[in-house]
Every structure is written in structure tokens, then in C-alpha cells.
């Protein structure tokens, strides 16, 4: 497959320029999140500054939750970075580890606070995992297929397989493949109490990124090609993603033994952080570095090879 465009948003800002900056200069320190319902618990987080959401497309989607807004922002950024594809041939594949758990918690919090008959229908309807894909398709007015894949560790790798199946079978000609995960109070509590985070190197993050993918075409039109690693190929560089926050249940063969540079500290721990490593891999391609291998340390899915 070819990558035609990449858009993203994370703690370090919006767009590939911001990622490039972060790779060279590092990122601002994490902010401190004190759990509103459990003030005694606080944790550093890499969260997205609210002012990034203040764009017309997102203001028009007045009810959108943070989960949907992050996806809209990254999808819009992705399409700005490439030639616009014919929208009637675009499918959307969205990967998430935890879905819009903050909306889900807000909804059930309303049931607890006010009673089972007084939940908010807006929170409920936004607690479905496909709400972000729906906001993206509504913003772009795409009418093709949109599917959301949920997995705690390997959602991005699985979404890449869905994209390949759709392109190979001719279902669509372009896939807007996104990943999104958000920070939310109840999950932070679970991570904190379950000792999945600490204050130094396991800092939760949030964000979204989208790749615009097509079947392989002329090299001139693509940012990079992307495909599963083949045996016998030597990469010039290896990136190892270490974003995952939820350990895989055993037994599982993962790529944990791979060695290479890791940039996961730039966006923080999140289930679908691997997509940011793929974006880094695309940035690392130069005339000297022709092949970059990008390994998802926590996943059972084969590593991806990006080539110019």
C-alpha cells in the first residue's frame, strides 16, 4: 500500500511539522491531571491542548466528544497534507484501544448520580466506539464504508490489514486509516491503581493520527509505501514502538525482543500509539535511509516496513 498523506494531533501539537519538531527538540513537560472524583490521586499526562479544537469543522459538530474531536482534527490534517482523493471512493477504518471511555463513564455517572431513568442520551450515543468514525465521515461527507476496530494492543496493525483487504478486494480505492485514544478519569484510576503507570516513564497520553492509503502506485505520488516486513529484507533503520499501556495476556508471541530507537515518550502511553511511530518512520525516510522497519513491541502483528 502507499501512504499518500499523514495527519496527526498529540501533546506536541498538530501536524507532521509538530512531530518533526518534537523529534528534534523534545516536547513540553506533561501536565498534571488530578482526578476530579478522587482528588488524592494525580498523575502526569500528555494531553492535547483544548485550543487546538477551535476550528470551524469542529465548532460545527457541537456535540462531539473529545474522542471525536481528536479524530476530526487528525483526519482534516491528513487530507490537507495530500491531494484530495475522490470522496466517493474513500473508506474509513478507525483503530482504538479503549474507545470513548470518558463519554461512557459520563453516561453511567449520570445513571449513578440521577437515577437509571435519567441518563444523558447525548453521552450514551457518543459512547459507541464508532462515534469518532461517524464524526469524520460526517465532516468529510464520505458515504463509503466506515468501520471501527477495537483491540487493547494491536488495533493499528489490524486496521492496516482491514485497509489492505478493502483495497485488494476493490471495495474502495482509498482508505483513511485513523487511530484514536483518549485520556479519561476512570481509566487513569484503573491504570494508577493497577500500577500500569508511574510518574517517570509510563505517562499516559492521548491523540489521533490518520494515514491516507491507496493501492501501490507510482513512487512520485506517495510519501512512503507500507507493507508487512518480508524475510530477507534488511532495513536501514528500526523503530520500536513502546506506547502500549495494557499488557497482552499470555501466551502471546510479541515483537518484544526487537531493538531500535523508540519515540513513544513524545506522545505518551496509549493503546494505539503505534500509529505515531509509523508517522515517525515516514519522517525518517531520506535518500540515505530507504527502508525503515517499524515494530509494535506489544503486538502480535508483524512489523511494518516503510519504503520511499
Amino acid at each position: 500500500m502507499d501512504i499518500l498523506g499523514i495527519g496527526l494531533v498529540a501533546h506536541f501539537g498538530k501536524g507532521m511539522g509538530a512531530l518533526k519538531d518534537a523529534l528534534s527538540n523534545g516536547v513540553a513537560p506533561p501536565s498534571t491531571y488530578r482526578l476530579p472524583h478522587r482528588q488524592e490521586i494525580s498523575t502526569p499526562v500528555y494531553s492535547i491542548p483544548d485550543d487546538l479544537f477551535d476550528i470551524p469543522a469542529i465548532r460545527a459538530a457541537r456535540r462531539a466528544n473529545r474522542f471525536g474531536k481528536m479524530a476530526m482534527l487528525a483526519a482534516a490534517d491528513c487530507l490537507e497534507s495530500s491531494l484530495p482523493p475522490p470522496l466517493d471512493r474513500v473508506g474509513i477504518v478507525l483503530a482504538t484501544g479503549l474507545g470513548p471511555h470518558a463519554s461512557n463513564m459520563e453516561f453511567s455517572g449520570g445513571l449513578i448520580q440521577y437515577g437509571l431513568d435519567q441518563g444523558s442520551p447525548t453521552h450514551f450515543s457518543h459512547s459507541v466506539h464508532n462515534s469518532a468514525a461517524a464524526y469524520v465521515s460526517n465532516m468529510l461527507k464520505t458515504h463509503g464504508p466506515a468501520t471501527t476496530i477495537t483491540h487493547f494492543q494491536s488495533a493499528v496493525g489490524q486496521a492496516l490489514q482491514v485497509a489492505k483487504a478493502w483495497l485488494d478486494s476493490g471495495r474502495v480505492d482509498y482508505v483513511l486509516l485513523g487511530a484514536v485514544d483518549e485520556i479519561g478519569e476512570l481509566m487513569l484510576y484503573i491504570f494508577h491503581e493497577g500500577q500500569l503507570i508511574d510518574k517517570t516513564d509510563r505517562i499516559p497520553g492521548e491523540g489521533s493520527a490518520f494515514l491516507l492509503l491507496s493501492r501501490s502506485g507510482p513512487a512520485s505520488s506517495r510519501l512512503a509505501s507500507i507493507q508487512p516486513m518480508r524475510s530477507g529484507v534488511e532495513a536501514d533503520l528500526c523503530l520500536v514502538d513502546d506506547s502500549s499501556i495494557i499488557p497482552l495476556p499470555t501466551p502471546h508471541q510479541t515483537q518484544a525482543v526487537a531493538t531500535g530507537a523508540s519515540y513513544s515518550h513524545l506522545w505518551g502511553k496509549m493503546p494505539t500509539g503505534y500509529i505515531f511511530s509509523l508517522a515517525c518512520a515516514a519522517l525518517k525516510l531520506t535518500p540515505e535511509v530507504q527502508k525503515v522497519l517499524c515494530v509494535d513491541k506489544s503486538s502480535a502483528i508483524p512489523a511494518m516496513l516503510l519504503e520511499r
Partner: peptide, 13 residues
């Protein structure tokens, strides 16, 4: 329509 059901809950709460 989604606002309408949200107003129902608002009246209740």
C-alpha cells in the same frame, strides 16, 4: 431529535 430527548432528561433532573 437528540436535543429533544436531552431536554426530556433536563426537565427530569
Amino acid at each position: 431529535s437528540l436535543d429533544a430527548v436531552e431536554i426530556v432528561v433536563l426537565l427530569q433532573r
